[in-house]
Design a protein around this nucleic acid. Structure first.
Lengths: 194, 194, 194, 194
DNA sequence: GATGAATGAGGCTTCATTCAT
DNA sequence: TATGAATGAAGCCTCATTCAT
C-alpha cells in the first residue's frame, strides 16, 4: 500500500472516531456533519472527500466498531480454559467495553433504523457473529456439563442485555469501581447459566 | 374541574398518545410536529395551543408513560404472596410491557439526551421510583431469607437491563411466544437473586 | 370551490409566474428557489408549502404555459377561413408569443433534460398537441390543394424552428417591429408549404 | 514555438474537447470541473493550470467550436458554382453539423447567459461572421437574379433557425435518415429565398 | 380553539477554487 | 506539471415555531 493510501485510511479512521463520539452522544439524526467535522478542526465540506454522504459515514462507523469488538472477544475462545472461565472472561471484556469505550460500544448494541437494507445487512451479520461467540461458549459448556440450562440463546440475551444496560447508569464517581462490577456481574450472570 | 378543563385534558392526552407512538418509531428528533398532528387530523399549529413547544410535549409523554407503568407495578406489591412470587409477577408484567407496549415502553428505558436538566430531573425521579419497587421486593426477599445475594441494586440492574433488551430483538413471528419468554426469563432471572 | 382554495391556487400561480421568469433567464439549474421566492417577497421556505420540491414547481410551470399556448392557438382552427389564412394567423400568433411572452414561451420549446420520465411524459403530450395543430392545418391545406408539399411534418418543423429562433436575436430596438416581422415571416414561410 | 508550448496547446485542446462534450450534455451549470477532468483521467485541480477558471474554459470551448465551423463553411464559398448551389451545400453542411456533431454544435447556436460581457463579445463576433457567410451568398444570389427576396437577413434567420431546431427532435432511429433530411430541407428552404 | 400560511435557522450536499507538495 | 486535500459559498430541503384570522 502506498503512503498516500495509508494517510487516506488514517484520516478516514479519524473521522470515523469523531463521528462515533458524536453519534453516541446525539444519535444518528442528532449528529450533524458540521459537528463531526468541527471536532477535527475541519469543515464539513471536507468530509465529503472521504465519504459519499452521511449514511455512508455512519455505516462505516458501525462496521469498524463491530469488527474490532469481534476480534477482541474471539481471543478468549482460543485459550485453554474451561467454558465457565471463558464465559467469565467474555463477560469481563464486554463490560469493560461497555464502560470504557462507551461511545464506540453503543454502536454495537443499538440497532439504528437509519440504514437502507442493503447497508443494514452486513452490520447485522457482524452483530450476529458477535452474539454467536457467546452462544458457542454456552453451548459447549452445556455439552461438557458445566452449564445446565435448556435455552442457551435466551440466556445469552439475558447476559448481553443486562451488560449493555450498564452504561445507562454507570458513572465513575458512583459507588462501585469497574473491577467490582465485573466481578459481581460475572458471579451473578454465571448463576443464570449454571 | 370545569367541563372545558376536562376537555382540554382529554385533548392533551390524545396528543400525548399520538406523540408517544411516533417518538418511539422515529426517536425524538425524527418525530415531527406535523406527523404527530396529522395522526389526530389536526394541523401542527394547533399543538402549540396545548403545549409550549416540542420539548414540553415530549416531556409530558415521558411523564405519563412512566406514571402509568409505576402504578401498574405497584399493584403486585400489595398482594399477599412471597417475595419470590412478587418478583416473578413483576418480571412478567415488565416483560409484557416491553413487548406489548413496546412503543410507550421505550420511553421508560431510553434516557433521551434531549431534555434540559430542569425537565430531566422529574423524569429521573419517577424512573427511580419504578426501580425502587424492584429493590424493595428484592431487599425484603433477602430479609426473609428467600434471596441470598449481597448486591440487591446490581441484581435489580441485571433484571431490568436484560428485560429491557428484549424489545431489541423480539418479534411476534420469532420462535417463542411472549408467554414462553415470560416463563423462561422469570426462571433464569430468579436464579440471579436466589 | 372554497375561497381558501381559490387563494391557494392564485398564490401557486403567482409563484409559477415568478419561476417561469427566472427559469427562462437562467435555465433549470441556474434558477434558485431563493431567487424565485425573493421575486415575490417570500422566503424560500414558503415555496415548499405550495410545491413538493423544485422539480415539481418547474414541472407545473411547463404545464401551465403549454396549456395556455395550446388554447390560444386552437382558436384559429375554428374560424371560417382558408387553411392558408389559418396558417398565417397561427404564424402571427406564434411569433407574438415568441416575442412578447418570451419568458413563458421558452418553456414550450426548450426540452428540459431535467425531468424524471414520469413527469416528462405529460409535458411531451401537450407539446405534441401544440405541434399537431400546425400539422392539421397543413394537412388540410394539402387536401384542399392550397398547399403542395409532400412532407407536412418537416414543413411544420421548419416553421416552428425558424419562429422559435426569433427570440434568440429579436430586440425591440432592432430594425424591424414585431408587426413587420410577423408579415415577413408569414410571407416567407408560406412559400415553404405552397 | 517551443516544444513545451506546443504540448501546452495540445493539452488545452484536449481539455476543451472534453469540456465541449460535457457542456453539451449537461449545460454550463450542469457540467462540473470534476467530470471534465475525469474524462481525461486528470484531477480537477490540474485544469486550473491551463485555464483561469471555469468561465474561461467554457469560453474557449465556444471560440474553438465556432472557428472550426466557420472555416468549414467558408470552403463552399470559393467553389465555382451558382449561389443557389452554394446555399444548398451550406445547408447540407449545417445540417450535418447539427446532427452529427450535435454536441459541439450546440455551442454555436445556444447563446449562453453565462458569460460576462467582455467574454461574450468575441463569441458574438465569430457567430456573426458565420451568419455573414449565409448573408453573402444570399445577397449575391439576389444580385445575380437567382433569388428574389427583399429581406435577405430575415431569410437567413429563417434558414438557420429552422436548421438549428433539427437537433431538438432528430433521432437516428426516427423515420428519416440524415441524407433525406438534408435533401428535403434544402428543397423547402430554397423555396424561401427564391 | 383551530388553521393556513409564513418564517428562518439549520442540516445535507455539491462544487468551483486554492494551495502545499 | 499534477495532485490530493481542504475550503466555503451556495443550493435544496425540513421543520419547529409564530401569528393573523
Amino acid at each position: 500500500m502506498k503512503l498516500s493510501e495509508k494517510k487516506l485510511l488514517k484520516k478516514k479512521e479519524e473521522i470515523i472516531l469523531s463521528a462515533v463520539k458524536i453519534v453516541n452522544r446525539k444519535g444518528y439524526r442528532g449528529a450533524t456533519m458540521d459537528e463531526i467535522a468541527a471536532e477535527l478542526l475541519m469543515t464539513k465540506g471536507s468530509l465529503y472527500y472521504y465519504f459519499k454522504n452521511k449514511e455512508d459515514l455512519i455505516f462505516q462507523c458501525h462496521q469498524m466498531v463491530l469488527s474490532q469488538a469481534n476480534e477482541e472477544l474471539q481471543g478468549h475462545l482460543n485459550e485453554m480454559i474451561s467454558n465457565e472461565e471463558k464465559l467469565r472472561r467474555m463477560i469481563v471484556t464486554h463490560i469493560q467495553y461497555a464502560i470504557e469505550e462507551k461511545e464506540t460500544f453503543n454502536m454495537i448494541i443499538k440497532p439504528d433504523q437509519t440504514f437502507s437494507t442493503e447497508q443494514l445487512n452486513p452490520i447485522l451479520l457482524i452483530r450476529n457473529e458477535y452474539a454467536g461467540l457467546f452462544d458457542k461458549v454456552i453451548r459447549e459448556g452445556i455439552a461438557k456439563g458445566e452449564f445446565t440450562i435448556g435455552e442457551p440463546k435466551i440466556a445469552r440475551m439475558i447476559l448481553l442485555g443486562s451488560m449493555n444496560w450498564i452504561q445507562q447508569w454507570y458513572s465513575p464517581e458512583g459507588g462501585k469501581s469497574m473491577e467490582e462490577l465485573q466481578e459481581i456481574y460475572a458471579e451473578y450472570l454465571l448463576k443464570v447459566v449454571k
